[in-house]
Design a protein around this nucleic acid. Structure first.
Lengths: 204, 204
DNA sequence: AAATTTCGTTGACATGATGTCATTGACATA
DNA sequence: TATGTCAATGACATCATGTCAACGAAATTT
């Protein structure tokens, strides 16, 4: 599990400094948001000199992206959930479950998701990172749709790529809304309605 | 049509200055994007002093918002298209038509839409403006869904608010993708697939 | 038509964030 | 002990923003 680390005291300290900056960044981003967070705030909290931040990260955006990565892995796990239903009903259940996990993870990580939403509007590199997640979901959903079509569960007249994309888009937007607290709907209602529409639109 | 204008020479010049700033802004935004456009660039193109821009607009965001308004009115027209179908088929046709107009307008105004997309990620006030359009579409679609349910064309087990929201979300996201040229799909395919999924998911 | 007021216009200025770079000094190496 | 390496640093140059006191031409008053 643990690869041996031939760490000199210097390298160790460097890693610690980097880590200090990341955690200081985490805290600052969560309390101030992306836009209002400055390098000065981060290095102050990390107790390092100004230039130090630029030794480890090209800029604020890059520092933030490292913070995103851990969270992204959790999403990837959900994106890759197995999907091999035999019946219409089983399909509905698996789909509903994936939506639920996606939305619940987002809400659990609400604080960070809010900042990510803000950041992806401002920073092209953050936007691209989020785009990675999106495409990963979409290509996996595409495969699922194709599976259902091959199993004669889903209508073959529909383009699986477009179906997958449209389906994820709706999910994503509801997710941002839930994260932003602008919703006046219960999560369960959202899941139930979306799943029903999707399954009855796509499946026989 | 034309309300009488009791315009002193001063007020006239003021209006002209404002207009110069708006057109200079328009040009600059379209060629440089939102982020990279600065007040200095705008006033230089408008041939006014630096402070003048701040006389007419609180900041860059507000100037941009005035530029958005005209375009937004075109969207509102589409949002309010009449919808009173008698049959399933008529409903499908009306829906398809609305989607088509929405996407075509976006593509026709592609240059400005690209800047709007960028701006709404950066400026909260632009985001709110766009949110107005979205909610206007959604509430209108909600009414349409309710109409179809009352006419016994659509399933009554679905929540019309959530259906309308999810449907618009998918449309919006495809629209941004089309505007951004990231699409590898034809508009017609997108419209056909989305409409089919929606109608067969919602209608009996 | 002279005097006075109003107000559109202006650019210098203060502020604040960013990214760079020459320098420093503690640690590693010989 | 001497020499090198490199993590750390903060002063600096750069750039954008928003403010404000002052100017002067137009409008109004006397």
């Amino acid at each position: 599990m643990n690869t041996d680390k031939p760490l000199s005291q210097r390298k160790l300290q460097a890693l610690q400094t980097r880590e200090k900056l990341l955690t200081a960044g985490q805290e600052t981003f969560l309390s101030n948001g992306f836009q209002k967070t400055t390098i000065s705030q981060i290095i102050k909290k990390a107790q390092t000199g100004y230039g130090t931040a630029y030794v480890y990260f090209r800029n604020k955006d890059e520092l933030f992206i490292y913070l995103m990565e851990e969270l992204m892995n959790k999403f990837y796990t959900i994106a890759e959930l197995p999907f091999e239903p035999i019946t219409h009903e089983e399909a509905r259940s698996l789909i509903r479950n994936q939506v639920q996990q996606f939305l619940q993870l987002s809400i659990k990580e609400k604080a960070m998701m809010t900042v990510i939403q803000e950041a992806k509007g401002i920073s092209p590199s953050v936007q691209e990172k989020w785009s990675n997640i999106r495409e990963r979901f979409i290509s996996r959903i595409t495969i699922d749709v194709q599976y259902a079509q091959a199993a004669n569960l889903a209508k073959k007249s529909l383009n699986p790529h477009l179906v997958a994309r449209g389906w994820f888009y709706a999910n994503e937007m509801f997710m941002w809304e839930l994260v932003h607290n602008e919703n006046h709907y219960s999560i369960d209602d959202v899941i139930k309605n979306m799943t029903q529409m999707y399954v009855e639109g796509l499946y026989h």
